[in-house]
Nucleic acid binder design. Structure first.
Lengths: 161, 161
DNA sequence: CTCCAATAGTTTGACGTCAAGATAAACCAA
DNA sequence: TTGGTTTATCTTGACGTCAAACTATTGGAG
């Protein structure tokens, strides 16, 4: 019995008129997200990165050569606002992990690219990060994880189409 | 195909040495949590509340009479730090939605209780909130939601035991 | 051509959160 | 008792985030 079940039991006692089944599902997603974020944060901060910075570096790394994207593209991948992305890029630039140049084809735009140091760092941290993610999902069998992916994917698609 | 599938495809192309299956599951939880938080926020802010304040009021409400808990208990239910909870209670107290008294039985502790205004507000907002949660889970059938609950519950229990 | 709406990023100000340290009371072993 | 440890809460300072306003550039309608 997880903590969410206790929360639902309280609501059923206090507000039996409400059908709180969806609250249970949503609550589990929320609490799981907190536990997972905390679990991933340790590995990331151990390398002097923040979760926010890691997110951007990883997006550039997996985009493939030349490991460069516009702030707009980074925003679309990472689900943050433009102001947040400006701030993230500022800090990564200060740290020497990315560069920011004007887009030669569009005077409004710019291009954010991994530096050699940024590439080396993210490429190493991602390895540990993935290993850590395996640990964090250990409680589920491969089959269970696959069934979970299918259900989460269907739900997620309802928001991202 | 959700956005996470595209992210995994990029990693598989760039770093075929990594098994990114767990990243997919964790990524879906994270993105779903963002969509759900945004979807719930609108209903909550429409009543002049923040998600943070709602969280505390709801915890007090479902605890049942006399709708009063210590900051420690609120911290345990809501997964935030003590400093965060102090700040949340401060704001709710300013808004006249809760009161804070010293615990007569323990001079270190205190008791946070819903005011009549706080009770009336949360009791109304929760109704709309639950209806909204039904909307947010519409993409899944009852059976799918139940299977999802079982898998999420098992995973969550691995962190909360 | 000339505007003017749309687009790309940045800036600003406020807020929620956290980690770490401070304070005060309670507990407990000697 | 007494002194040290633990517990409960608050304070402080820094950071990440957002919404909204702002600047600069582009692109299309007339």
């Amino acid at each position: 019995m997880d903590q969410v079940e206790r929360i639902l039991a309280q609501w059923r006692a206090e507000r039996p008129d409400l059908d709180v089944a969806p609250m249970g599902t949503i609550g589990r997603v929320k609490r799981l997200n907190v536990h997972l974020s905390q679990g991933m944060e340790r590995v990331i901060t151990a390398h002097g990165l923040t979760a926010a910075g890691f997110d951007v570096l990883a997006t550039l790394r997996r985009a493939g050569p030349p490991h460069a994207l516009s702030p707009s593209a980074l925003i679309a991948w990472t689900m943050v606002t433009s102001g947040t992305m400006t701030n993230r890029i500022d800090r990564l630039e200060e740290a020497g992990l990315v560069t920011r140049r004007r887009d030669p084809d569009d005077g409004r735009g710019s291009v954010v690219a991994l530096t050699d140091a940024g590439f080396a760092l993210i490429d190493q941290v991602v390895g540990e990060h993935v290993a850590n993610q395996h640990r964090l999902t250990e409680a589920l069998s491969d089959d269970e994880r696959a069934r979970l992916d299918e259900l989460l994917g269907k739900w997620l698609a309802s928001f991202e189409d």
